[in-house]
Design a protein around this nucleic acid. Structure first.
Lengths: 220, 220
DNA sequence: CAAGTTGGGTGACATTGTCACTGAACTCTC
DNA sequence: GAGAGTTCAGTGACAATGTCACCCAACTTG
């Protein structure tokens, strides 16, 4: 089904043929639909997770119903938060939800341990993954603690849009990205609209003046 | 001077005698005064850092002059943020400052790599350290994004006090703990005072009614 | 089409952040 | 121990953000 997933990851592509064959043998491939919860407070995995295809959004939610996106796991990345959870047996309320249909490689812990012990390349990969997430979270803290809503929203709109001119997103959805309330997003968006940087219709936002958004996103 | 620092760390105490002797040989011991910057944007270390004695406060600051405490490194912990920085060569503006006089063990990267490769116990220690920091940061994000100032301040006052009844801390200092502005801390503290939970004098805060503070800290 | 559901708008108010001050409390120097 | 400078804290006005209680419009479904 998947030709050879070890091609796909920084940490495994460099491994000797024999090791890779063994890995392909011992790992399980799983598929999940978009919207499925990959992990969460009630669903703590005991294995290591490598995302072969698709995208996962990792978020944290408050008990008052608000939510914030921490980062996204893209194809080729591993998901270290699950690992972290296993190691530091502390409670946390982050969850990972598949944003698209996903295909992932699940490596049993013993195999993971062995690989980390024996293979330099794999070890580097895992450490890099941890480091990346740490840095990601530093960025989130910085944004939430010190950033301004209009700037943050402009940044997020541009990031979500990529090369496209329009994004399918409700105000609530954007609020969950930034960890704020829907009303706040509505307010800021209607301001953007007044300044003719965007155009809105139900569930869609058209980025009319990307340069202006970019300028705002880079300011302050 | 230090009898055998390898006793001190989870990751090294369990190692074979021979390995530990080699470690003691290859590592450097450093001392720093309270207030010294251990690492920062301008001061990126190329070695691994194990805190033998003292405490380090790791914080992040905005370009507008505000600051927030991310976590503290206690004696017996390693400081993984420096590692993270080395691996993911991204810019970040976190810094570590010695809160007390500190004594630390600095392990050159080659020795670190070798240890991680060869020693299970050490590897576990390092992964656990990373995981702990990830969880710490999740907690910070949660607090900043969803927490209320009065609750957060009550929590912090209790944490900083420990068993003591009084803490030496300026309003500005507390603001830097929580990533807010001094005026906000002043406001909340004067409210606490009005409710007779604390008493204030210049640079000192007496926790008069700890149970009430505790109740507040645990609420919402 | 009617009814239900979801997305979005709005005004009032609470909390938090920012700014521009003031004065009090400490420190230092002479 | 009397000023001078510095650090710490208090204040009022205002801006930005969060919360609440609604409303209505747009879609969806039976």
């Amino acid at each position: 089904m998947i030709p050879d997933w070890t091609e796909r990851f920084q940490g495994t592509a460099a491994l000797p043929r024999a090791v890779r064959d063994r890995l392909v043998d011992v790992a399980r491939i799983i598929h999940m639909d978009a919207g499925a919860q990959v992990f969460g407070p009630m669903n703590v995995p005991d294995s290591l997770f490598f995302l072969y295809d698709g995208r996962i959004r990792v978020s944290q939610s408050s008990d008052t119903g608000r939510e914030i996106t921490l980062y996204r796991v893209d194809a080729g990345d591993s998901c270290v938060l699950t690992t972290a959870c296993m190691l530091a047996e502390e409670a946390y309320n982050a969850e990972g939800v598949a944003e698209t249909e996903i295909t992932a490689v699940v490596l049993p812990k013993p195999a993971f341990d062995r690989l980390v012990a024996e293979e330099e390349a794999f070890r580097k990969f895992v450490f890099a993954a941890y480091s990346k997430r740490l840095i990601d979270l530093l960025r989130v803290v910085d944004d939430v603690a010190f950033g301004h809503m209009d700037v943050r929203l402009a940044q997020r709109l541009l990031a979500l849009a990529g090369d496209l001119k329009e994004i399918p997103a409700t105000h609530q959805r954007l609020a969950s990205e930034l960890g704020t309330a829907r009303e706040v997003v509505s307010r800021v968006l209607s301001d953007f609209q007044k300044r003719e940087m965007i155009a809105q219709s139900r569930g869609r936002i058209a980025l009319v003046d990307k340069p202006a958004l970019r300028a705002l996103a880079d300011s302050r």
